[in-house]
Amino acid sequence: MKIILTGSLGNISRPLTKELVQKGHAVTVISSKPERQQDIEALGAIAAIGVLQDTVFLTSAFSGADVVYCMIPPANATEPDRIAYYREIATNYAQAIQQAGVKRAIYLSSFGADLDKGTGIILGAHHAEMILNQLQDTVITHIRPTYFYNNLFMYVGMIKRLGRIAVNYGGDDKIPMVSPIDIAAAIAGEIEKPAAANQVRYVSSGEYTGNEIAGMLGAAIGKPDLKWQVITDQEMQQGLEANGLPAKLAAGYTEMFASLRNGLLSGDFHQHAPALGKVKLPDFVPAFAVLFNQN
């Protein structure tokens, strides 16, 4: 099959590219960075260099594809309106898919995308799903992963400054988590599986409490007493703003994490819980320790 992948060579797209190429598919990887071209070609894929804001480029890249995999890259760190950003890129994807006549697409969404309020920046994924669902002649599979292990990297600096993880979720509450490797495997499986109608697939690798996470990370970085402290939403908002986030964006993150704490974010996930992936949190912890010790 001719398969188009977005996401450059990120944590999901790199292993996904490798797997699909090894299986004999003709893979094109879209990247906004020309310097990625050599690495993409080294994996046996074709590089298409351009930006997701350019629908003419996207339509050309999607032309003739059997399947396209669409993900929305992180917005600029100072972009306060993540919902508008998601809607813009999703609209561009939908336009390119329609104009190129693509019949099958995979969208990297998020758990919580079933909800139209109360989930902060995850609302962007909800709007993106709604936009893509409007396509009449394309079958869409929405991949909804849970909390990425890699998100824990954001706490390296906090642990060094404060000696603890202090956020408005976690503690004794279980957090459904996932490895990008398991997400890539799920996407590869969906690409090769016939689908007659739009569908949703959740992907997760395991569930851990904040305290369990702190214990594993602390043991790996030589801080066996590392604690996970649950702070208030107000304290979370103030802390994010103090670190330079615009108030609107800080509010989006605060609400998203609050919805994880109160169970709103993972409600539909738990009703449709998938078989768990192979990569567990202890498999990720050494990578966290390496990054912690490098900085």
Rank of each mutant, 00 (worst) to 15 (best):
T59E: 13
G50D: 01
I191E: 12
L265W: 12
I40V: 11
A65I: 01
A128F: 05
L20H: 07
P224V: 02
T119Q: 03
A186R: 13
V21E: 05
M71V: 09
P34T: 05
A184Q: 12
P274I: 02
E207Y: 02
V102T: 11
Y85L: 05
A42W: 03
F153S: 00
A242S: 14
A287S: 15
A45T: 06
K117H: 09
M236K: 13
P73V: 05
H126N: 11
A100P: 14
Y202I: 02
K278D: 06
I30P: 05
R164D: 02
Q238G: 01
I183G: 10
A184G: 13
E79H: 14
I40F: 05
A247T: 12
V139Q: 07
S259C: 10
I131Y: 06
I213C: 02
L240M: 15
A26H: 11
T78N: 14
S266R: 14
L240S: 08
V68P: 13
I89M: 12
A197L: 04
I4W: 01
A47I: 06
H142F: 15
Y208I: 04
C70E: 05
E79F: 08
A251T: 13
S204L: 00
Y86H: 15
D66Q: 08
I83R: 14
N293Y: 01
G170V: 04
G120W: 08
I4G: 10
L9H: 06
I97R: 10
E207Q: 11
L291K: 14
E212T: 07
D54N: 13
R14E: 10
I131R: 05
P286E: 10
A219R: 02
N168A: 13
L249H: 10
I165L: 05
Q136N: 11
G112L: 02
R82C: 09
A166D: 12
M158L: 04
T141K: 01
L20E: 06
V51K: 14
G101P: 10
G64H: 06
A45C: 02
R161P: 00
K278P: 00
K223D: 03
G112Q: 04
T254Q: 14
A84K: 15
S204E: 01
L217N: 11
Q95E: 15
V102D: 09
P286F: 08
S205F: 00
G50I: 01
L249M: 14
R82F: 15
H142C: 02
N11W: 00
A61I: 07
E241W: 03
L123W: 06
M236Y: 12
G218F: 00
I4H: 04
Y253C: 09
R14K: 14
L260Y: 04
Q238E: 12
K227M: 00
I4A: 09
Q238S: 06
A42T: 13
T141Q: 04
A188G: 09
R87I: 11
D268Q: 13
Q22R: 13
M256K: 13
L123V: 09
S204Q: 01
L281W: 03
